[in-house]
Nucleic acid binder design. Structure first.
Length: 599
RNA sequence: GGAGCUGUAGUGUAGCGGUUAACACGCCGGCCUGUCAAGCCGGAGAUCGCGGGUUCAAUUCCCGUCAGCUCCGCCA
C-alpha cells in the first residue's frame, strides 16, 4: 500500500471526455472492476462524478503493470496518466466516457480490501438487512448519489424559495419537555435533576408558535422529529419535517404559498409541471367519495352510495344492512368484467381481511348480469342499481354492505388493490389534493373523552365555536392535510391565538386546569402576551422525496435508516451503557426474566 | 401487542424424510495484449438462523425463538 504523496487529483472520472485527449490527468477513486488480459489490464475507475476506463500496459511501465495485477474490485487507487481516444472499434457506447480511456503512467494503491460481504454492483439484489449493516457499501452506488444529490437540491430549492418569501430559518431545541397527547416521546434523562427528563421533539410545534408571538412572522426549519411509535415503509422513528409558520394569514394565503413552493420545487428539481391551484376536498366529501381522508386521486372508481336505492329491495342482505343503520356502497370497475372467478374470490377474501362481511360482485355482460346475488333482485331493481352506478356492459360492480366505518375503508382499500392490479396509477403522475374541514374533536371510546383530531392548538371555525360545549362532534377544525398520490405529505392548521379559546379546548379534551397550566402554561402565557393570529404546516420531507423519486420506502432517501424494530444495523443502536453512566443519570434497569437485546 | 412472508457457502438462488447439499456470481491459483457482466482451466468455501420435538433417520415435518420485510393496532 502506498500514500498519496505528491499526487493531486486533477479531474473527476466522469468529467473526462474527448476534449481532454492528450492531457495528463490524475484521478483518484475506487476500482469498480478489473479485467486482466495477461498482456493488458483494464480498470473501470469510479468516483462520485462517474466512471472511466484505465488501461495498464507493460509497454508503458512494467512497474505500473505489476501493481495493476494485484488490484481488486473496490481498491482505492490514484492513477496518473494520459487521456487518449480509444482505438477504433473499442469504444463503449454504454459508458458516458466510452470514447476515451486513460493510459496509466503511474498507479498508487491507496487502500486495499479484504473480502467484502457484497459489492456495490450487486447490492440491488442483496438482502436489505445486510445492506444496512454495511450501509457504506450500499451507498457506494450512483443510485444513492443521485438520490442524495436530489435531496440536497430539493432542500436548497425550498430554502431559496422561502428566503425569497421573507422566511427566516430558525432552529428550535432538541432537548425539550414531554407534553401530553400525540405520539410516545423519546426521553433523555437529566443528569443534573434526578428523575427528570427531556423529550426529543415530535415536532417544533409550540416553539414555532412562540416564534410567532415573538414577532418573527415567517419561520421555517428543516426539523428533525422523533416519535417512538412502530415503523412502516414510510415511517421512521426520526425523520425530517419541513416546518413552517406564518402570522396574519388565512388558509387561502397559506395554500397559495405552498402550491407555489411545490410547483417551484417540482419544476426545478424534477422538471415536472405541477398544476396549481391544487383541488380541495372537504374531509366528509373525501370519505364519501373515496372512503379515506388520503385518497389517491390519480385513479377514478369513486364510491357510490346506493343505500337509499336498496333499502326496500328484495335483496335481504342489502335491505337489512340499511334498515339496521348501515350502508351499501359500491365502486364501478371499468372493463372489470374480464376478471376471472379466481380474481373475484381473491378480492372477496381481501375484503374480508379488511373487515367486511363479504364482497358482492356483479359482472355486467351484454345481456345478463353474472353474480351470486343476481337472482335476489328483480329486473327493475337490477336496472336501477346499474344505472345508479353508471354501469356499462363489460364493467364490474363491487359492493360492500356494512357499517359506514367498515364499508368506506374496505372500498378504499379495494380501489388501491384494483389500481395496482390494473396499473391505473401512473408513477410519473403527481396528483395533489388538499383535505379540509376535518372535525376538531373525536370521541375516544377507550379513554371516554374527546381528543383533538389534529392537535389541541388547532383553531375551530369561528362559526362553529358555539358547538364546542353542546355538540363537539360538529365543530370543524381549521386544519388541512396535503395528499400526494394517496400519501399524506403535509398537514397543518390555523392555530388558537387567544388564551380563552385555547383554555376552553383544553377543558373539552379533558385536560384539567392545573395540568394545562403545568404542561402548557408557557404557551398560555405567551398567548396572553400579544399573540398574533397565525398558522402553518409541516411536510414529511423524507416522504415527499420518496414520492418524487418513485421509491417504495422512506429508507431509500435516508442515509442511515433504522429497521422496522427501530434498531440501527450499522451501529447496533440502541446499545447498553455502563453502570457508571446509568448511575450518573440516576437510572436503574428493572429486572426482567428475558431481556431483549438487539443483535 | 397481532397477522403474513422470508432465513441453505461471501452474495443470490435450487433442493429434498436417507444426496458427497447443487447452480450462478464472487473469492484464491494458473493461462491469456482490447476487454468493458472479458474468456479458458483448476481450487477453496455451508455446524442449511437458533433451540426443542416427531422419526431408525430432519436442511426437509411440527412447536418455539431470533432477525429482516409488509400490514393491522399505534403514529396529536
Amino acid at each position: 500500500m502506498e500514500t498519496v504523496g505528491d499526487l493531486r487529483r486533477t479531474h473527476g472520472c466522469g468529467e473526462l471526455c474527448v476534449d481532454h485527449i492528450g492531457e495528463n490527468v490524475v484521478l483518484m477513486g475506487w476500482v469498480k472492476r478489473q479485467r486482466d488480459h495477461g498482456g493488458v489490464i483494464f480498470f473501470d475507475l469510479r468516483d462520485r462524478t462517474g466512471i472511466v476506463q484505465v488501461v495498464l500496459s507493460p509497454d508503458e511501465s512494467g512497474d505500473v503493470f505489476a501493481k495493476g495485477e494485484t488490484a481488486r474490485a473496490e481498491y482505492v487507487v490514484a492513477v496518473r496518466g494520459e487521456v487518449r481516444r480509444r482505438p477504433p472499434g473499442t469504444e463503449n457506447p454504454k459508458m458516458a466516457t466510452g470514447e476515451i480511456e486513460v493510459v496509466a503512467k503511474e498507479l498508487r494503491i491507496l487502500n486495499t480490501v479484504r473480502s467484502l460481504p457484497f459489492y456495490p454492483d450487486e447490492a440491488e439484489s442483496v438482502d436489505e438487512a445486510l445492506r444496512l449493516r454495511y450501509r457504506y457499501l450500499d451507498l457506494r452506488r450512483p443510485k444513492y448519489w443521485e438520490i442524495f444529490a436530489m435531496r440536497h437540491r430539493a432542500a436548497q430549492e425550498i430554502r431559496n424559495f422561502l428566503t425569497r418569501k421573507g422566511f427566516l430559518e430558525i432552529e428550535t431545541p432538541m432537548l425539550t419537555r414531554s407534553t401530553p397527547e400525540g405520539a410516545r416521546d423519546y426521553l433523555v434523562p437529566s443528569r443534573i435533576y434526578p428523575g427528570r427528563f427531556y423529550a426529543l421533539p415530535q415536532s417544533p410545534q409550540l416553539f414555532k408558535q412562540i416564534l410567532m408571538v415573538a414577532g418573527f412572522e415567517r419561520y421555517f426549519q428543516f426539523a428533525r422529529c422523533f416519535r417512538d411509535e412502530d415503523l412502516r415503509a414510510d415511517r421512521q422513528p426520526e425523520f425530517t419535517q419541513l416546518d413552517l409558520e406564518m402570522s396574519f394569514i388565512s388558509e387561502e394565503e397559506l395554500f397559495a404559498l405552498v402550491e407555489e413552493m411545490l410547483a417551484d420545487l417540482f419544476s426545478q428539481v424534477l422538471e415536472k409541471n405541477v398544476k396549481t391551484p391544487f383541488p380541495r376536498l372537504k374531509y366528509r366529501e373525501a370519505l364519501d367519495r373515496y372512503g379515506t381522508d388520503k385518497p389517491d386521486t390519480r385513479i377514478g372508481m369513486e364510491i357510490t352510495n346506493v343505500s337509499a336505492l336498496v333499502a326496500e329491495s328484495s335483496c335481504k342482505i342489502f335491505a337489512q344492512t340499511v334498515q339496521k343503520g348501515g350502508v351499501v356502497k359500491g365502486i364501478r370497475v371499468p372493463e372489470g368484467a374480464t376478471f376471472s372467478r379466481r380474481v373475484l374470490d381473491e378480492l372477496s377474501r381481501l375484503a374480508v381481511d379488511w373487515g367486511a362481511r363479504g364482497l358482492a360482485w356483479f359482472v355486467l355482460g351484454g345481456e345478463e348480469v353474472k353474480s351470486p346475488l343476481a337472482k335476489l333482485f328483480t329486473a327493475q331493481e337490477m336496472e336501477a342499481l346499474i344505472t345508479a352506478m353508471g354501469g356499462k356492459p363489460g364493467d364490474l360492480l363491487l359492493f360492500v354492505a356494512d357499517k359506514d366505518e367498515v364499508a368506506g375503508p374496505v372500498l378504499a382499500n379495494l380501489r388501491l388493490e384494483l389500481a395496482r392490479r390494473l396499473q391505473l396509477a401512473k408513477p410519473e403522475d403527481f396528483s395533489f389534493v388538499w383535505i379540509t374541514e376535518f372535525p376538531l374533536l373525536e370521541y375516544n371510546e377507550d379513554e371516554k373523552r374527546w381528543e383533538a383530531v389534529h392537535h389541541p392548538f388547532t383553531a375551530p371555525y369561528e362559526e362553529d365555536i358555539g358547538f364546542l360545549e353542546t355538540a363537539p362532534e360538529k365543530v370543524r377544525a381549521r386544519a388541512y392535510d396535503l395528499i400526494l398520490n394517496g400519501t399524506e405529505i403535509g398537514g397543518g392548521s390555523i392555530r388558537n391565538y387567544r388564551r380563552d379559546l385555547q383554555e376552553k379546548i383544553f377543558r373539552i379534551i379533558g385536560l384539567p386546569e392545573e395540568e394545562a397550566q403545568e404542561k402548557f402554561g408557557f404557551l398560555l402565557e405567551a398567548l396572553d402576551c400579544g399573540a398574533p393570529p397565525h398558522g402553518g404546516i409541516a411536510f414529511g420531507f423524507d416522504r415527499l422525496l420518496m414520492l418524487m423519486l418513485g421509491r417504495e420506502t422512506i429508507r431509500d432517501v435516508i442515509a442511515f435508516p433504522k429497521t422496522q424494530s427501530a434498531t440501527c444495523l450499522l451501529t447496533q443502536a440502541p446499545a447498553s451503557v455502563t453502570p457508571r453512566q446509568l448511575e450518573e443519570l440516576h437510572i436503574s434497569i428493572l429486572e426482567r426474566a428475558e431481556q431483549k437485546s438487539p443483535r
